[in-house]
Design a protein around this nucleic acid. Structure first.
Lengths: 153, 153
DNA sequence: ACAAGTATTGACAACGGTTGTCAGTAGCGT
DNA sequence: ACGCTACTGACAACCGTTGTCAATACTTGT
């Protein structure tokens, strides 16, 4: 109790469930992006078993609500991360990520100039309804964390 | 046609086949990105039947050789496009794309500033072995072309 | 506290894109 | 022409993700 439980879920008229809270917590505990399956594994190992389908459903909803950021990795798999301080209900500002290829650790980055550039380029070419994806990948060099991923183990 | 068949395939010690040439031509005729399946369909309709597996194989190889650019769409599907004038064997310079969401039409774009910015940001955060993805999507507003896609038909 | 109504759950099947398999085919050097 | 072997392609297997639907458990009204 204490600190109003399911604070992050209390967005509105949704029912708060054990599973939802567990997913929320796991997401909060993660310091970076996690795939649905990785999240499912973590929950499993923590004893908080949640169906894979349920994990996908929550992630999808959270993504729609703008509560989590989604990154599509080069191999086509999607990874999620809790978006900023959030819980305020107000979608975060547009931003991108610097993601560690190995452990998923990520940093939010903003580049107003880049945003402007992208729109200018698109407009110059006569494109409308413009959007863009921009993610920077690299090695953070300090992933000591026992990160369980889909990769190995 | 136009003499010197498989000009673009003549990279080295590879056998030139009817299928390979067909894929190459279709890729050359396309004015934008195509998914493997879309390409397969086009070839089929042109009477140049080629196995889907073969299309995937060629695309994969071409991508490895740097002969085609690959874009992973938000839904996780991959789309390919012949890379620049190419055929020289020398991989194109690093660049990105402005892609029409509807017809696949695309324009290559370069942004030295953005590249520099991306690397600077990553370096500042202590990341190494940096790479990035950047694609701009929009509506080109003039896709009159009878584009056959996986969507319909 | 209890009952009723309905969102949520989760095991399982289905789906769509992509890759592995492997016998048959066809370039290419000799 | 011959033989070697890369290439081909129908098909099955994979894998991430979504649909299905009966069972479950939040919530609200009483």
């Amino acid at each position: 109790m204490a600190t109003s439980p399911s604070a992050a879920l209390a967005a509105g008229r949704r029912r708060s469930t054990r599973q939802g809270a567990a997913i929320d917590e796991a997401l909060a505990a993660a310091d970076g992006f996690r795939t649905a399956q990785a999240l499912h594994d973590e929950l499993r190992h923590q004893g908080q078993a949640v169906g894979l389908t349920t994990v996908y459903r929550h992630l999808k909803r959270l993504a729609e609500d703008g509560a989590v950021d989604v990154v599509v990795r080069p191999d086509g798999e999607a990874a999620y991360r809790r978006c900023g301080p959030s819980s305020s209900g107000v979608p975060e500002e547009h931003h991108h990520h610097l993601v560690c290829r190995t452990c998923g650790y990520s940093v939010e980055i903003e580049g107003p100039e880049v945003e402007a550039w992208a729109h200018r380029v698109a407009a110059d070419a006569g494109f409308t309804d413009v959007s863009h994806t921009l993610e920077i990948f690299g090695e953070c060099g300090r992933h000591e964390r026992p990160y369980v991923d889909t990769v190995s183990q």
